[in-house]
Amino acid sequence: MFRSLFALLRRDLTLALRRPQDALTVVGFFVVVVSLFPLGIGPDPEFLRSLAPGVLWVAALLAVMLSLERLFSDDYRDGTLEQMLLVPEPLGLLVLTKTFAHWLITGLPLVLISPLLAVQLNLRVDEIVMLMFALLLGTPILSLIGSIGAALTLGLRGGGVLIALLILPLYVPPLILGAGAVDAVMHGASAQAHLSLLGAMMVFALFATPWATAAAVRIMLD
């Protein structure tokens, strides 16, 4: 069973490596959006520092959302998604595997590049560590919830914009918790509650979202 899931993971990663520009575009978007903020709100270091958690999280959230459209649409267009419905494995596990691959390709690079942007916004070392940790816990949630939206908009005109409307309201809890964790460290408070809730949310999303996504894929291919 794990062999076929592993095969799928390997295929998606191979495809991403052969077309690295897709993943790089997402990282580029993240960097550009964060860099635009100081131009819009002024260079005052303290002010930027206080806005940094929210800015970084909103930018990461938008970057993930932007990449979601590609999650299933390529497989949908060339017919491989159809073939996946015929595979012995439960569709839920297959979409979970694809979502994991998607996170490795888009979410993880965001986590890795975030310290650089955090330095630009004058965050201190302990805040940067917390930011990376919160993003590490939070970006999988974004990918998991996003996979539902990606599946629901398969084959629709203007799917990308529609994903935003469907998914962004659902991104409120991870945004609050993730940005809040960094904020807490900034104000000398403990971020443990934030991280615990974020972790709980990730576990819940891990178990719940693949089935919703699988149902959505079946409906859109029906």
Partner: peptide, 24 residues
């Protein structure tokens, strides 16, 4: 298909409403 797909969305939404409410 429209009914089925938006039904999935409504169900996902209703699970999320309490989570959103408490986090807010």
């Amino acid at each position: 298909r429209a009914s089925n797909a938006s039904a999935v969305l409504a169900m996902v939404g209703v699970v999320n409403v309490p989570i959103i409410y408490f986090s807010v």
